[in-house]
C-alpha cells in the first residue's frame, strides 16, 4: 500500500503593496520538484489547468521563471455550493546555480504538469579546493 497524499492548500501570492495585477485573477505558487543529474537540471511543476499555449518559461541569467495562465471559469449555469480551492494563474522563480545551455532546453506540459529539462553547459568539472593550514 502506497502512502496517502496529504492535502496542501494552494499557496497564494499577494500583490505587492500599492500594486495591482493586470489580470484580475489570483496568483498561486505551483508545487515543484527540482532534480539534478551530472548533465542536466530537471524541473517538474504542478500547474493544473495549464496547457502548452498558456505556459511561459523564461531564463534570465540564472533566474528561471515559470508562469501559467488559467482561464477556467465556473461551470455555466451552476452556483457554487462548496468551494475548497481557488483557481488562478501560477508563477514561480528559481535561482539556478549552474550555467544552462539555453538552446537545448526542453519543455512539455502533460496532465497539468510542466516538465523542464535544462542541460548544463559543458562537462561538469568538479574541483576540490584544499585549505592549507596557515
Amino acid at each position: 500500500m502506497s502512502k496517502e497524499i496529504e492535502v496542501k492548500k494552494k499557496q497564494e501570492i499577494a500583490p505587492a503593496e500599492g500594486q495591482e495585477r493586470a489580470r484580475d485573477r489570483s496568483l498561486f505558487v505551483p508545487l515543484a520538484d527540482i532534480y539534478e543529474t551530472d548533465d542536466s537540471v530537471y524541473v517538474a511543476a504542478d500547474m493544473p489547468g495549464v496547457n502548452e499555449n498558456s505556459v511561459d518559461i523564461t531564463l534570465d541569467k540564472n533566474v528561471l521563471t515559470i508562469r501559467g495562465e488559467v482561464d477556467a471559469v465556473a461551470p455555466q449555469g451552476y452556483r457554487p455550493v462548496y468551494l475548497e480551492y481557488g483557481v488562478g494563474d501560477y508563477e514561480r522563480k528559481f535561482v539556478l546555480s549552474n550555467e544552462i545551455d539555453r538552446e537545448k532546453i526542453e519543455a512539455s506540459v502533460k496532465d497539468g504538469v510542466l516538465s523542464l529539462k535544462l542541460p548544463k553547459v559543458g562537462p561538469a568539472i568538479a574541483r576540490k579546493i584544499t585549505v592549507k593550514k596557515g
Binding site: 496529504e6 492548500k9 452556483r79 455550493v81 468551494l83 475548497e84 480551492y85 496532465d111
Partner: peptide, 27 residues
C-alpha cells in the same frame, strides 16, 4: 473557501438539474 479535509480538494457546483464536482489532480 473551506479547508479541504483530505486530498483532493474539491469544488462543488449545483443547480436544480444536477451538480458539478471539480478537483485538481495534476499528473
Amino acid at each position: 473557501m473551506r479547508p479541504a479535509p483530505c486530498f483532493p480538494a474539491v469544488n462543488v457546483w449545483a443547480n436544480e438539474e444536477g451538480q458539478v464536482v471539480t478537483a485538481e489532480l495534476p499528473g
